[in-house]
């Protein structure tokens, strides 16, 4: 007797994250959560809604507004053998915990000669696009990716939202999971078993032979939309989702660029000294002679993100910018 085929149900990115959290809480008694308003309030983006009721206060720990102390507490608990998953509401507030993240979590393993690895997971929301102005709109993924000792991941799809946490727990390193604020309501179907999700490789989200659009996080959707528009003009773009910003999986994007001979990097972070600069430089080092056009970038404009809608839009990467620039690169004759 064959069972009826399971009809996949569309879930939101938020629900996928919650499933990921639930499954690690169920599977590993050492996993516990710390964060502001994750319990009684239900999570500032409602990701942790219902977990307090299911797992209780000892494992879903509401913390006061003390980012430095509770991130540090996560580090200490990790050293003691637990598997803390700390939520910082948004990357903007992670700056209050930066000392603990950079000076302690990222350094302990190496500085102790390997004695003290820090198996700590930190989740935080990131990004702009909701008119919440400069202090709430930072994209500091690239900035954090500068730091040796950290692993940085940026789930952009439903599958990655559900599976990256479990994959992160397989390492004994501090891992930061950046969840772009504009993705929480994105819907999709879980297409793979979360157990097969890795946090080592970039992914090709759309195949194409004319140009590589290299991106991560919520900008993935801008690139996919741009790729459709380019396709209407007869240009087939390959879209690479970096997924893991540190350590960077350069093999995937270098191979792509060798095929397409053109690379356009899309990054919401500020342009100077950013992640896009790093990706671009690796292409220069490894694929220079394969290029038919200069490597280009579409990045956040170097300004604190303003409140007014038209100004905020102007400060962030836009689909039409990607399309125009990509098309001009393809037409470029080297």
């Amino acid at each position: 007797m064959s069972a009826l085929p399971q009809t996949a149900r569309a879930i939101t990115y938020r629900e996928a994250l919650r499933q990921g959290l639930r499954s690690v809480l169920l599977n590993d008694p050492d996993v516990f959560l710390i964060g502001e308003d994750i319990g009684k309030y239900g999570g500032c983006f409602a990701v942790t809604k219902g977990l307090l009721e299911e797992f209780g206060e000892a494992r879903i720990r509401d913390a006061p507004l003390s980012e430095s102390a509770f991130v540090g507490a996560g580090i200490g608990a990790a050293l003691a053998g637990m598997r803390p998953v700390v939520e910082i509401m948004t990357v903007n507030f992670s700056l209050l915990a930066l000392d603990q993240i950079l000076n302690t979590a990222a350094t302990l393993s190496h500085m102790s000669g390997g004695q003290c690895p820090v198996p700590l997971i930190i989740r935080m929301a990131t990004g702009a696009g909701r008119q919440v102005a400069a202090q709430h709109s930072h994209s500091l993924e690239g900035w954090y990716s500068h730091i040796p000792g950290l692993r940085i991941v940026t789930p952009a799809t439903i599958d990655d939202a559900a599976g990256m946490l479990r994959a992160a727990l397989e390492f004994r390193d501090p891992v930061i999971i950046f969840e772009h604020m504009n993705l929480y309501n994105v819907q999709g179907e879980l297409s793979v078993d979360a157990a097969s999700i890795n946090i080592e490789r970039a992914a090709i989200r759309r195949a194409g032979q004319d140009i590589s659009l290299i991106t991560y996080g919520a900008s993935l959707y801008k690139c996919l939309t741009a790729a459709e528009q380019l396709s209407a003009q007869g240009i087939e773009a390959e879209v690479i989702d970096l997924r893991v910003l540190r350590p960077l999986d350069e093999k995937t994007f270098i191979q792509s660029v060798r095929r397409t001979r053109r690379a356009l990097i899309v990054d919401e972070g500020w342009r100077s000294v950013g992640l896009a600069a790093e990706v671009g430089m690796r292409i220069m080092e490894q694929a220079f002679y394969d290029l038919d056009a200069p490597v280009e970038r579409v990045c956040g404009v170097e300004v604190p993100v303003p409140y007014a809608k038209h100004m905020e839009e102007a400060a962030l990467p836009r689909v039409e910018q990607i399309v125009t620039l990509a098309a001009s690169m393809v037409k470029h004759v080297g």
Binding site: N92, F93, L96, Q131, V132, A133, A134, Q135, H136, P304, P306, Y307, A308, M311
Partner: peptide, 21 residues
């Protein structure tokens, strides 16, 4: 229009901001 609700400044009245942190 750069600040919005959380970032009101008025130097003349020595109002040094709304701060969202």
């Amino acid at each position: 229009g750069r600040g919005g609700s959380m970032h009101i400044f008025d130097r003349e009245r020595r109002f040094f901001g709304g701060n969202a942190i």
